[in-house]
């Protein structure tokens, strides 16, 4: 009898859904601590509860794709425009309302409004101010210069931000030049690559490396902890004929199979509102994509440097080509 009861209980446990039906489900590829503040503000304002399901962006996109119409997700948040565009190409998203899309510049969202970029990060150089190479590296392409042998710090080539950056460079200067550049990076890194951006900044600050390729906020994260660290941000490729700094955005999309589209749309509306934009970008010292919303005071203003004019959708459309390019070079 006991045996049968426990089996029944077990069966009930396995079949029962574990969520509350009326909440908004957000598949979030962005760290909880950067998403929680904006979600809490949203719940406070609208009364809509949110369930955060955190994992890597690519893994979540994979899950969305396999689950198809059985998914419980209403919202997909990604740290990388490449994933958003990829999901749009796979037909996983539905359009957000034109009213909320239009407050964001066209280059930061999908052409058909199936996703919206929310906050931008710049791919920049961090240099040690005491190194003998300080002030001499002006372009990301300089990183392949043999004089910087063993002096550069880059992430491994599986890193999403690295891939997105390479996609921008390939789009601007072509595959051939990009492949040569990657070969130079490979040789200059001496096979030693970093698994975290934060470790790159650390290595540059300690003088182990002269210059590193990172997202801008990692520099300020380090400086917030160690204000006197001998490091400085360098915006690369700023000359008149140069390509400018590569950007990438974190953004949001509504699942095509959401049964909660009204709430999902409200969530997107909140994210592009001035209040939502400020909270979303500031926790990570990123640039809000909405014009007129100021970025964190610690980072250089967004109009103080030139940005590569590559629409963010390209990061998805050309990602596979970039992955093949990286594979063909055999980047570590």
């Amino acid at each position: 009898m006991f045996f049968r009861t426990s089996l029944l209980l077990l069966a009930a446990l396995l079949a029962a859904p574990v969520w509350a039906q009326d909440s908004l489900v957000v598949y979030s590829g962005r760290s909880d601590k950067f998403v929680k503040p904006v979600v809490d503000a949203f719940t406070k304002q609208t009364g809509i509860k949110v369930i955060l399901h955190n994992a890597k962006s690519t893994a979540l996109l994979n899950k969305l794709r396999i689950e198809a119409d059985k998914t419980r997700a209403d919202i997909f948040l990604s740290n990388d425009a490449g994933n958003l565009q990829k999901g749009a190409d796979l037909g996983l998203f539905t359009k957000v309302s034109g009213a909320s899309a239009n407050v964001i510049d066209a280059q930061f969202r999908a052409t058909d409004n199936t996703w919206i970029g929310l906050s931008a990060r710049a791919r920049v150089l961090v240099e040690n101010t005491n190194s003998k190479n300080a002030g001499t590296v002006k372009s990301v392409f300089d990183l392949a210069d043999p004089r910087l042998k063993d002096r550069i710090a880059i992430t491994h080539s599986g890193n999403g931000s690295f891939v997105a950056g390479v996609t921008v460079y390939a789009d601007k200067v072509g595959d051939k030049k990009t492949a040569d550049w990657l070969n130079g990076l490979k040789s200059n890194s001496g096979g030693k690559v970093f698994n975290k951006h934060s470790k790159i900044v650390k290595a540059v600050a300690s003088g182990k490396k002269d210059v590193g390729l990172v997202n801008h906020y990692y520099i300020y994260r380090h400086l917030a902890k160690k204000p006197n660290a001998p490091i400085r941000i360098v915006f690369p490729d700023q000359g008149s004929g140069d390509i400018g700094v590569a950007w990438n955005v974190a953004g949001v999309a509504i699942s095509k199979y959401s049964k909660n589209t009204a709430s999902a749309q409200k969530f997107v509306d909140f994210l592009v509102s001035k209040q939502g934009q400020k909270i979303f970008a500031e926790v990570n010292r990123e640039y809000p994509t909405r014009n007129g919303v100021p970025s964190s005071k610690q980072v250089p203003a967004r109009d103080s440097y030139k940005v590569a004019d590559v629409p963010m959708a390209v990061l998805g459309k050309k990602r596979d080509a970039t992955l093949n390019l990286i594979d063909s070079v055999g980047m570590p």
């Binding site: 446990l13 396995l14 079949a15 029962a16 859904p17 574990v18 969520w19 396999i66 689950e67 198809a68 059985k70 419980r72």
Partner: peptide, 17 residues
Amino acid sequence: VLTAVLFFLPNLYGGLL
């Protein structure tokens, strides 16, 4: 397993099964 559950037991998907 995910593919099989979605194919054979779609109504039970979403729990711990």
